[in-house]
Amino acid sequence: MEPKYPIPTVGALVKGPSGRVLIVKTSKWQGWWGVPGGKVEWGEPLEAALQREFREEVGLELANIRFALLLEGVFDPQFYKPMHFLFVNYFAESPDETVCPNQEILEWAWVTPEEALRYPLNNITRALLGAYTGRGAI
């Protein structure tokens, strides 16, 4: 049974040393590309959840974490099942671009923001990338 309240999640658009950003494709988003992230655990601070999710999903450590924007996803048809999410999005940097994917990550790419816009991005990531490019470089 699904919860009857919004689920808080964290994610980040991360820039590597090359100046490119990381996007990933997961099965949960049905072929749409996005950014690594996931649910916040009970009692877990948001930035700690973000660090944990990046370690678990792609094996990266994050630095220079900055809040980017808050988005809501209510029964988004791009997601594999009906859910109500609160997406707490960040910008961050990684000192390394070596991705060690877990089973959730089907594909990944380090791309320029312009290249990322040519991928089939989920709506949340497209909005995050828009905020990123509107602000200039992170």
Rank of each mutant, 00 (worst) to 15 (best):
V14A: 09
P45K: 13
F75Q: 13
F87W: 15
E61M: 08
I138H: 15
T26C: 03
V88R: 03
W32N: 12
L70M: 13
V88S: 06
P101S: 02
P45C: 07
F91C: 06
P36N: 01
E53T: 04
A48N: 12
K39N: 08
R55A: 00
N64S: 12
K15V: 11
L69V: 11
G38S: 05
L62N: 10
L129Q: 04
A92V: 08
T112W: 03
T9Q: 06
E61S: 12
S18G: 08
P8R: 15
P77E: 11
L129V: 10
T125V: 05
A49S: 13
V10S: 14
L62D: 03
K15Q: 15
E56W: 06
V35F: 10
E61H: 11
S27H: 02
L46C: 00
A127Q: 11
T9E: 14
A68D: 12
M83K: 11
I23A: 03
K25N: 05
P6K: 12
K28G: 07
G31D: 02
R118I: 00
H84I: 07
Q51K: 14
F85D: 03
E56R: 11
N102T: 06
A12R: 05
G31V: 00
Y90H: 10
P6W: 09
C100Y: 15
K15T: 13
G59F: 05
W32F: 12
P82L: 06
G43M: 09
A48L: 11
T98H: 15
V111Y: 03
L117F: 10
V88Q: 04
L60V: 03
R118V: 00
F91W: 13
F79Q: 04
N123V: 08
A12S: 14
E47Y: 09
L22N: 03
V14K: 08
L62Q: 05
L121G: 01
A92E: 03
N102I: 01
Y119L: 02
F75T: 07
L121Q: 02
I65D: 13
W33K: 01
K15N: 04
Q30R: 00
A109F: 01
G11E: 14
R66K: 15
E104C: 04
P3C: 06
A116L: 00
W110S: 04
Q51N: 06
A116K: 03
E114P: 02
A127D: 11
W33R: 01
T9N: 12
Y80N: 13
I124F: 08
R135C: 10
I124K: 06
P17K: 15
E53C: 04
E93L: 04
I124S: 05
G11W: 01
S27P: 06
L60S: 08
K4Q: 14
V40A: 09
